[in-house]
C-alpha cells in the first residue's frame, strides 16, 4: 500500500531523516515511535508532501506521489494533528466539511456523511453549529478525526493525535479508536512519542532515532526480541505493562489448562491481549472467565491464578536479554 524507500531530508546541516525505508500493508497501522527530534514527524509530513524530501521515493498504491499534484494528493489522505488544527472561524459542521467542499460534493451528500460520522464518533448533533473553542479537548480531537475521515480516504496520517489530551480522555479515545470500524479498513501511519499509545494502537512499530529506523516490527518483537540496547532501554521503563499489552491470550494458549465449564457468561476472544483479560477480573472468590479461541473453536475456562501461571511459563520460554 505505502512503500517508502531511502527517504532523506536535511534541514541545513542536520539530517532530520536519513535514508529511511519501510512498507505498510493495506489496513495496517504503523506507529512511528521515538523521542522528539528523531525525525518521525518529518517522515510523516513527507508522506503528504507538507515537506518535500531531498531524495528517496514514496509510492502509495504503486503511484509515485512525488509526481502527483500535491493538492489532489492531500485531498485523498486524511490528516490528524496534535493540536487538532481546527479552523477557529468555522463551525464544527464547516470544519468537518472542508474536504467535501474542496472536492465539490453536493450538500446532501456532505450532510449525510457528517451525520454518519458524528454517530460513530459519539458526538451530539447539537455541536454542529458550535465553534471549536466551545468544545472540550476530547471533543475537538474527535472533530479533527471526523474531518480527516469525511471523504473516506484510504490512508490516514496522524501526528501525535492524542498528545494534547489528559490521560483519562486519552485512554477513552484510545479504546474508541480501536473499535471504530471506519479505521479498521484504513492504512494508518501514526506518529507518537508515547510507548503505551504505540503498543496499544499499532500493529507494527518503527522505533526511530536520529533520523533512522532502529527496529521495525510488532510490539512483541520489539519487547522480546529487541535489535539492540537502544530498543530495550527505550521500552524498559514501562516494560511490564507493555508486555501485558503485547502478549495475546493466543500466545499463552498452550500454557492454559484445558477444559471448559458451561456458564452463562459470554466468552472473551483469545485475540485479546493479556492486559484486557486481566481487566475483566473482578477478583471475586472462585471467579472464572471463558475464553474462545477462534482458530480451533476451543473454549477454556480459566481462573486468575491459571492465567498468571501461564504468563510466567510463557515468559520463561522467551530469550533473555
Amino acid at each position: 500500500m505505502i512503500k517508502v524507500e531511502q527517504l532523506v531530508k536535511a534541514f541545513g546541516a542536520t539530517k532530520a531523516v536519513d535514508g529511511i525505508s519501510f512498507e505498510v500493508a493495506e489496513g495496517e497501522t504503523l506507529a512511528l515511535l521515538g523521542t522528539s527530534g528523531c525525525g518521525k514527524t518529518t517522515t510523516l509530513k513527507m508522506l503528504n508532501r507538507l515537506i518535500e524530501p531531498d531524495s528517496g521515493s514514496i509510492a502509495i498504491n504503486g503511484k509515485n506521489i512525488l509526481e502527483e499534484n500535491p493538492e489532489t494528493l492531500r485531498r485523498g489522505i486524511g490528516y490528524v494533528l496534535q493540536n487538532n488544527g481546527l479552523f477557529p472561524h468555522y463551525t464544527v459542521a464547516e470544519n468537518i466539511a472542508i474536504v467535501p467542499q474542496l472536492l465539490k460534493w453536493d450538500k446532501a451528500k456532505t450532510d449525510k456523511r457528517i451525520n454518519e460520522l458524528l454517530e460513530k464518533l459519539h458526538l451530539s448533533k447539537e455541536y454542529l453549529n458550535a465553534y471549536p473553542s466551545e468544545l472540550s479537548g476530547g471533543q475537538q480531537q474527535r472533530i479533527g478525526l471526523a474531518r480527516a475521515l469525511i471523504a473516506d480516504p484510504p490512508v490516514l496520517l496522524m501526528d501525535e493525535p492524542f498528545g494534547a489530551l489528559d490521560n483519562v480522555t486519552r485512554s477513552k479515545i484510545h479504546s474508541e479508536f480501536k473499535v471504530l470500524d471506519e479505521l479498521k479498513r484504513k492504512t494508518i501511519i501514526l506518529v507518537t512519542h508515547d510507548v503505551q499509545e504505540a503498543f496499544e494502537l499499532a500493529g507494527r512499530i518503527a522505533l526511530m532515532d536520529k533520523g533512522k529506523i532502529v527496529q521495525i516490527g510488532t510490539p512483541a518483537e520489539l519487547l522480546f526480541n529487541p535489535a539492540n540496547d537502544f530498543v530495550s532501554d527505550f521500552l524498559q521503563e514501562q516494560r511490564l505493562q507493555l508486555e501485558f499489552k503485547a502478549i495475546k491470550i493466543t500466545d499463552l494458549w498452550e500454557h492454559l489448562p484445558k477444559g471448559s465449564r458451561k456458564t452463562n457468561t459470554s466468552s472473551l476472544s483469545a485475540e485479546s491481549d493479556f492486559w484486557t483479560v486481566l481487566e475483566q477480573f473482578r477478583f471475586i472468590k472462585g471467579e472464572n472467565l471463558n475464553i474462545l479461541n477462534q482458530q480451533n473453536k476451543e473454549v477454556k475456562t480459566i481462573t486468575f491464578e491459571a492465567l498468571m501461571a501461564a504468563y510466567s511459563q510463557y515468559k520463561n520460554l522467551q530469550p533473555h536479554e
Partner: peptide, 14 residues
Amino acid sequence: DATVKEAAVAMGMS
C-alpha cells in the same frame, strides 16, 4: 496559528 495553516494545507487547499 501554524497548526491551523498546516491543517489547511494538509486538507488539500491551494
